[in-house]
């Protein structure tokens, strides 16, 4: 039960954290009217994943390995694109902030209903099919008389959602600039992990080479089935056996994006002199 609990936790964690951050954004930006769009994105992703997973589990045909890897790899890379866009949008937002003046955001930040919906959809949908297949295999085991695997998996997912909620609660009271700065840096690391994970999928599918050449193997120190291995994998997509290509792609993503983000989001605005003159800022000062 514990092992299945940890799988459920790992599968749900990254999506729960991204959605938690997204909910916190909308709350901080006073854009709560966009929350229904966000939740419908989540609902569509969950619904499609469960339906498709059920079709593959109970239907007449299974899904070929290549197709599953191609889908996983494609969704991962699309997700990285969307999250990166979200990071840059946050960097711009953070730059416009002077202290904690909420109303200044109203003009500076335009985020559409569609964008919110699609980010939520992809964050949940990326690992959705894999998670659905795992859950349905638990349901099959329940049919054979053992509910423990399904209960374990469901509890793991519930804890993941709880942690996403805790992140939302914890970050909601941060100073607004700090909020954008920290959650943005966190997202850069999440996105880099997803990218490296997608690369590994494509290596396994044989689209990219180098599956056998490992940059490092710490699976002895960080067993993938341990609770800390689970957390590292769930949050940062950390793989204890990382290939050179994964490592290189991870670094090539993190270094420029993190540098760019920190320089923009954490640049200290000189008191009374905003980076860009704005009518509202002038009247406020």
């Amino acid at each position: 039960m514990l092992a299945n609990f940890l799988i459920g936790l790992r599968e749900g964690l990254e999506a729960a954290l991204v959605v938690g951050i997204l909910v916190a954004y909308l709350a901080r930006l006073n854009r709560r009217e966009l929350l229904p769009a966000l939740w419908s994105g989540v609902a569509v992703a969950v619904g499609v994943s469960l339906a498709f997973g059920a079709l593959l589990t109970f239907g007449p045909s299974g899904l070929g390995f290549e197709a599953q890897e191609a889908l996983g790899g494609t969704l991962s890379i699309l997700t990285v694109g969307l999250v990166t866009w979200m990071i840059f949008w946050m960097a711009r937002t953070a730059r416009h902030l002077k202290g904690d003046l909420q109303h200044e955001l109203d003009g500076a930040v335009a985020v559409g209903r569609r964008a919110v919906l699609v980010v939520a959809l992809m964050a949940v949908g990326r690992e959705g099919l894999e998670t659905a297949l795992f859950l349905w295999s638990g349901a099959q085991a329940t049919g054979r008389g053992s509910a423990a695997p399904l209960v374990g998996a469901a509890l793991g997912l519930a804890v993941a959602v709880g942690l996403g909620w805790a992140l939302y609660k914890g970050s909601i009271h941060l100073d607004l600039r700090k909020f954008f700065g920290w959650t943005g840096m966190f997202l850069v690391l999440i996105a880099a992990g997803v990218l490296a994970y997608g690369v590994h999928d494509l290596q396994e599918a044989g689209v990219l080479p180098g599956l056998g050449s490992l940059a490092f193997d710490v699976s002895r120190a960080v067993p993938p089935t341990s609770w800390y291995g689970t957390l590292l994998k769930g949050v940062f997509s950390f793989s204890p056996e990382t290939t050179w290509l994964q490592a290189v792609v991870w670094v090539l993503y993190v270094v420029p994006v993190m540098t760019f983000f920190v320089r923009i989001a954490w640049a200290r605005p000189r008191a009374g002199a905003p980076a860009r003159p704005q009518p509202t800022a002038v009247t406020a000062a």
């Binding site: 070929g64 390995f65 085991a141």
Partner: peptide, 9 residues
């Protein structure tokens, strides 16, 4: 997971 069964096609 322990007790589960999954297919590879």
């Amino acid at each position: 997971g322990p007790g589960l069964s999954r297919d590879l096609v």
